[in-house]
Design a protein around this nucleic acid. Sequence first.
DNA 1: ATAAACTCCGTACTATAGAACGGAGTCAAT
DNA 2: ATTGACTCCGTTCTATAGTACGGAGTTTAT
Lengths: 150, 150
Amino acid sequence: MFDWLLDQKVQNSIGSCYMKKNGTTISKAAQRAGVGIETIRYYQRLGLIEEPGKPVEGYRLYPEHTIDQIRFIKRAQTLGFTLKEAKVLGELGEEKCLETRDLAGLKLELVQSKIRDLKFIEHNLNDLIQHCDTRRKDEACPIYYSISKQ
Amino acid sequence: MFDWLLDQKVQNSIGSCYMKKNGTTISKAAQRAGVGIETIRYYQRLGLIEEPGKPVEGYRLYPEHTIDQIRFIKRAQTLGFTLKEAKVLGELGEEKCLETRDLAGLKLELVQSKIRDLKFIEHNLNDLIQHCDTRRKDEACPIYYSISKQ
DNA sequence: ATAAACTCCGTACTATAGAACGGAGTCAAT
DNA sequence: ATTGACTCCGTTCTATAGTACGGAGTTTAT
């Protein structure tokens, strides 16, 4: 039951107790997960990862599992998911595939909608820049004019 | 020189002094510009529009020019410009076309970069959803799996 | 004259994802 | 034993674009 406590004592008597087994310190965990220390604390505050219990003496130890969770969150972010969504994705796990698919579908629609908006902007900017480049010297700035009008 | 003061007195003796000429109250200005009152105050705080002087008695009066400025800002926003950039665009005016063009060019590049990023995400999400839809019943969720791996 | 509506003004809050700070505690090594 | 490095913890700050609030003053309408 309390083997881990024993383990720690044993390690303590041998060398530093902060050399893995039971986990690593926050800075090592951050380094291994590719994030800053503050990011880990922030995820803890949001409840995205559980905070390891504070030992009576010494520092909190972050298990491998938590580091994996952080990596999971980071990869979810690269797919456009927010931290809140990343949390849900983690909770859904590998079983609730339909819900996960739905979440991804919604995200896809959002992303596509953003792309459409940006393309519209891109088109307008391109147009305006064209007008700028082909304007006569004495004409007022087409961009300024276009924003001013209506 | 102080005709406006006279005007106001005259108007005062006739009816409400808050019926245009010299400007309108903030709520009317907001309505005519299509924004909220708080937005106008916010733009004032940022120095995007000048705050009309507070008369000794009564409320501030917003001239037509300020309403135009707010509309200018709003249109600049639809082109993807931030408020800070909208301010610069307004200051550049219709003369400094080259600078304006540069600003638009930078914005265009930013927008295109965002589109590329979003398309990458779109592609990945599409892939994952495909995998979800073609997976065998007994397989773990491809999306969850993909985010977990590596 | 009094109530409803409007304005003024500063401050605080929304969302998102952290970064930075400061002081106290703890650990490791010389 | 003391220094340097690390941790802990709460709080504050960043950026962006507003929204909301609360109390006091002003104007308008009845």
